[in-house]
């Protein structure tokens, strides 16, 4: 019976991978096969988010309450994930809130760089605790109409909406939140 196990060496590891450069891959220096998917989806949103979207179109934010834990939850949901029971009444909440945390982003969703030096304003997404919902209940949205460097955690903000005719029942019916 052998119990003298082998130890991993640098030489062993070096042989495991052939390291390429970006140019090798995108410049066809090695043979690659490429595919650009153009898949399309239509997402049903269910009764809870469906109502949320319909109310956004009306320029209102709506939440749902669980009578067991007494939380007023936004976005609304048909069941309480903590109590694991159906939620109860619909509750309108305010379109204002408090910045819980935020980011000053120089990149877009695919890590593309924004032209900050060229004058493009950094994206400033934030978690905004909504007034009228339970404490700490936030949503993700953008902050604007303020110098990004002046945004502070704890800052009071309010929603700026699209014009009623332009709303489509989407979270983007709120353009952004601004200091109040």
């Amino acid at each position: 019976m052998t119990i003298s196990n082998k130890q991993m060496t640098k030489e062993m590891i070096e042989k495991t991978v052939t390291s390429l450069s970006r140019e090798d891959v995108i410049g066809n220096k090695v043979i690659t096969s490429k595919w650009e998917p153009k898949l399309q989806y239509a997402w049903d949103n269910g009764p809870a988010i469906g109502r949320y979207l319909a109310e956004l179109k009306n320029g209102k934010l709506i939440a749902k309450k669980c009578r067991k834990c007494n939380r007023i939850m936004i976005p609304p949901r048909m069941f309480c994930e903590l109590c694991w029971r159906p939620t109860d009444e619909w509750v309108y909440v305010k379109d204002s809130g408090t910045v819980n945390t935020f980011v000053i982003s120089h990149v877009d969703w695919k890590a593309g760089r924004l032209d900050i030096k060229g004058g493009v304003r950094p994206f400033t997404p934030a978690v905004i605790e909504i007034d009228g919902a339970s404490e700490g209940m936030g949503i993700l949205h953008m902050i604007d109409e303020i110098d990004p460097q002046k945004i502070k955690i704890g800052m009071k903000v309010k929603a700026i909406w699209k014009k009623p005719a332009e709303r489509e029942g989407a979270i983007t019916d709120i353009l952004y939140f601004k200091p109040r």
């Binding site: 590891i13 070096e14 495991t16 991978v17 052939t18 390291s19 390429l20 450069s21 970006r22 090798d24 891959v25 090695v30």
Partner: peptide
Amino acid sequence: TKFVRFAK
């Protein structure tokens, strides 16, 4: 294996 940015 070695960790690299682009492996062949």
